[in-house]
């Protein structure tokens, strides 16, 4: 699976950002966040939305993890990596290496 291949190589020094044609919205009818890209909707939970907000192409994955830890009690090490890796694989996010 390409997904796991990306996950294995993901580096804490990566600086992720949403792909140019992807945007996050809050869908009031459902009360949930979603990422929108060409002909695609990814529903995301509030933690996912917090990650996306921090993916500004300046912060590294490592910095995003610490930032989330300062806000929430339970942030597993791999949560951010999984999330970013999956979106990179699906063309929803891009990364600057190091």
């Amino acid at each position: 699976m390409r997904w796991s291949r990306v996950l294995e190589t993901i580096d804490d020094a990566w600086r992720p950002r949403l792909a140019p044609h992807v945007r996050m919205v809050f869908n009031t009818a459902r009360g949930e966040y979603a990422l929108l890209s060409p002909e695609t909707v990814w529903a995301i939970n509030p933690t996912g939305a917090s990650i996306v907000e921090l993916c500004d192409s300046r912060r590294t994955v490592g910095e995003i993890v610490s930032e989330l830890r300062s806000r929430y009690e339970h942030v597993a090490d791999d949560d951010v990596r999984h999330f970013v890796a999956e979106l990179v694989t699906k063309h929803g996010m891009e990364i600057d290496h190091g």
């Binding site: 919205v25 009818a29 459902r30 979603a34 929108l36 002909e39 909707v41």
Partner: peptide
């Protein structure tokens, strides 16, 4: 449609 929750319009 937007009120119903639609996000993608084709």
């Amino acid at each position: 449609a937007a009120g119903l929750g639609v996000l993608q319009l084709h």
